[in-house]
């Protein structure tokens, strides 16, 4: 049974195909309004989420399907100690496809190994978040019209930021990608990501702690939140959380063609004043995420013979 745990589970050709479908949905949403009639999606969210869960649910509704939702672990059998494996084996009997978020890394793989229906990883701890990356890719495609020869600045928490790791992996597959890694020393991109993702692809990258000086050469600035939930030590979090704040003043130094992306939610790493800048694309990412999730749900249901 085909599931998507990591964005790299999808080939470049499959991502192109998903983008093509998403563009077609955007152009003619009515064409897709009944594609998933009588099909059901379960959203199993073992940790809090607003946009990802609602995005999956909106995606399924817009395809004409139905949604059964578990929005917090406390209200489910997980609170009684039920394993992920048992939960998905049970839920597989009720629905056609599962989108699951879980705080533990690798939980989505356990789910996929035990479900009899497709599982989409909606985030497993600090590990992977493939549909966010699909949202990012559609945004880049819509704004830049191509994926080749782009210089992307990743800023903030590059250590625990799963969206950064996933997007690095996805963009490393396109020729001419260059990365500028902007973070405090404590939150640098893990060496295994460099060794396993950047180095084999021959990606040129630079590491710096300075945001402002890095901006002038960027095509894309990908901001991230320092995530409180990834720290064991509150002191470390408080010390690092306000290290990078993108303001309207700093945006004056950025090229006119540079776009600003952020997986959201933001705390204060992007000033609200930046929202009015036409280069701010983070709310477009949210919308693009829904379209890519629609495309992915259709693809996996078709492959599973359920459409």
């Amino acid at each position: 049974m085909r599931s998507v745990i990591d964005v790299l589970d999808l080939s470049v050709e499959e991502i192109d195909e998903l983008i093509e479908t998403a563009e077609d949905i955007i152009a003619d949403p009515d064409k897709y309004a009944h594609v998933c009639d009588r099909k059901k999606l379960a959203t199993l969210f073992f940790e809090p989420s607003t946009r990802t869960r609602m995005s999956f649910e909106a995606a399924m509704y817009e395809l004409g399907g139905h949604v059964i939702s578990m929005s917090e672990a406390n209200s489910s059998s997980a609170a009684k100690g039920e394993s992920v494996a048992d939960t998905v084996k049970t839920v597989s009997n009720y629905v056609d496809i599962i989108a699951m978020r879980h705080p533990k890394e690798g939980a989505a793989l356990v789910a996929a190994n035990n479900a009899s229906i497709p599982v989409i990883n909606a985030g497993d701890g600090g590990h992977c978040h493939p549909t966010q990356t699909l949202a990012d890719l559609l945004t880049i495609h819509r704004e830049k019209k191509h994926f080749d020869n782009l210089t992307i600045g990743f800023c903030g928490d590059l250590k625990f930021g799963r969206t950064v790791h996933s997007l690095c992996g996805a963009m490393a597959r396109y020729p001419g990608s260059k990365f500028v890694l902007i973070s405090p020393e404590e939150l640098k991109l893990p060496s295994y990501v460099k060794r396993n993702v950047l180095d084999p692809a021959g990606i040129q990258y630079t590491q710096t702690t300075d945001l402002e000086d890095s901006m002038e050469n960027l095509d894309i600035l990908y901001m991230t939140r320092v995530q409180r939930e990834r720290f064991f030590n509150e002191e470390d979090y408080l010390r690092l959380k306000d290290r990078y704040i993108l303001t309207a003043e700093k945006m004056k130094k950025a090229p006119e063609s540079m776009i600003v992306m952020h997986p959201l939610p933001r705390v204060n790493e992007i000033s609200v004043a930046v929202d009015d800048d036409p280069r701010a694309c983070y709310f477009k990412q949210v919308l693009n995420g829904k379209y890519m999730r629609m495309a992915l749900i259709m693809k996996l249901l078709k492959e599973a013979g359920r459409l």
Partner: peptide, 13 residues
């Protein structure tokens, strides 16, 4: 040894 890994909580995994 990763305390965030699913192997720390999933039964008999």
């Amino acid at each position: 040894k990763n305390p965030r890994c699913i192997t720390t909580t999933e039964q008999e995994l």
